[in-house]
Design a protein around this nucleic acid. Structure first.
Length: 336
DNA sequence: TATCCACGGGAAATACAGGGAG
DNA sequence: CTCCCTGTATTTCCCGTGGATA
């Protein structure tokens, strides 16, 4: 390996698809998921799982990590991973299932036929299948879960939303015997450990001081994906300066960029009136509630009622886009 | 102490989305 | 595919509350 002064040694360590060789601070979750999936090594069926928790808490990574491990220990184990954000219709899911066991199978047929072929193929090959349905709340026709489970397919359902399955037919839900596993946000010190691990593998030795990792960890607010992306970005900034070490400024700039991106993302999910309110607060830095509403009424084409305005502001506060000061009366809003 | 007025709970009204019939 | 109905989510209206102010 040539030393060209670069900071990043192994880029893939920072990529979304990277599966770490060990998962830190998820011991309890690993134990529970392993308990449910371990039977496949003995040729028995897996117990169904429901994994839930906020983004960047290791749900998907843990599933892939487990799939890799079990695959290396059992020839008949067939893991299938499907992201329901990309494939949410019954047909899309059924096609993905079939082509993962039979890549050449024709797909221009009804979902029911595809599913039947899939199950037939699984039985012929004596596969022990576990299907991971990521972002399962996006899935349109959840009745399929019942058909799969009844056919002996193990299910790993993943969602940000703990209540993703409340609208599911109670009879189907109870027939699945789901094992619930919660993935809480990482604490700052846990994120530091994770970042240390990645830095050790992905960056040249001594490329970053531990206290800077802590700055990144705190700013990521429990989300490992954000933390890792911020570290990578800081490394890139340092590299583009021609430096061999990440400095505080690189980190600060990267943290700022991450926060800005997040704000933009959240803002894009809100309606126009709420965005206008945010921009007025941003413009003033700090403003009283009464003044804010007055300015808002002048600027908006169709201003909402005063009570709705207060609901909107509560929402902006909840999303941590603005801060409210003053408890009861004379409330003032500030940009975070 | 009397009055003021933004806040927030809740009911009513309205907008919106999803499902079924034709 | 369109239209209509129904259930859900959002917005508006109304009002009691309690700290601030005079």
């Amino acid at each position: 390996m040539v030393d060209d002064g670069g900071i990043i040694i192994k880029e893939e360590v920072f990529e979304e698809a990277y599966i770490p060789s060990r998962m830190l601070h998820r011991e309890g979750q690993i134990r529970e998921v392993a308990r449910c999936l371990e039977p496949v090594v003995e040729g028995r069926r897996a117990l169904n799982l429901f994994l839930y928790g906020p983004p960047g808490t290791g749900k998907t990574t843990l599933v892939k990590y487990m799939f890799d491990d079990l695959s290396s220990r059992s020839m008949k184990f067939k893991p299938i991973y499907i992201n329901c954000w990309e494939r949410n219709s019954k047909h899309a899911v059924a096609s993905a299932l079939l082509s993962s066991v039979d890549p050449l199978a024709p797909l221009k047929r009804t979902p029911a036929e595809l599913l039947e072929d899939f199950l037939g193929s699984v039985e012929r090959k004596e596969y022990n299948v576990v299907v991971c349905l990521d972002e399962v709340d996006r899935m349109e026709d959840k009745d399929m879960l019942y058909d799969l489970s009844r056919a002996g397919i193990g299910l790993v359902l993943v969602s940000n939303d703990p209540y993703a399955l409340v609208d599911l037919d109670p009879r189907i839900k109870s027939s699945l015997f789901l094992n619930f596993v919660e993935f809480p946000k990482y604490r700052p010190d846990e994120l530091v450990d994770i970042l240390k691990d990645r830095a050790e593998i992905g960056l040249r030795p001594g490329a970053i001081e531990p206290h800077l990792l802590r700055v990144i960890a705190v700013s990521a607010e429990g989300d490992a994906r954000v933390a890792i992306a911020t570290l990578r970005n800081a490394a890139k900034l340092a590299e583009s300066r021609g430096a061999s070490k990440i400095e505080k400024d690189d980190v600060m700039q990267s943290v700022k960029a991450a926060r800005k991106l997040k704000v933009q993302q959240i803002l894009s999910t809100l309606n126009e009136e709420m965005r206008l309110l945010y921009s007025i607060v941003e413009e003033h830095g700090e403003i009283s509630s009464a003044e804010l509403y007055q300015i808002y009424r002048e600027r908006s084409k169709k201003p909402v009622a005063e009570r709705t305005y207060r609901n909107y502001m509560d929402r902006l506060v909840e999303l941590k886009l603005v801060k409210a000061e003053g408890d009861v009366r004379w409330r003032r809003y500030k940009v975070v």
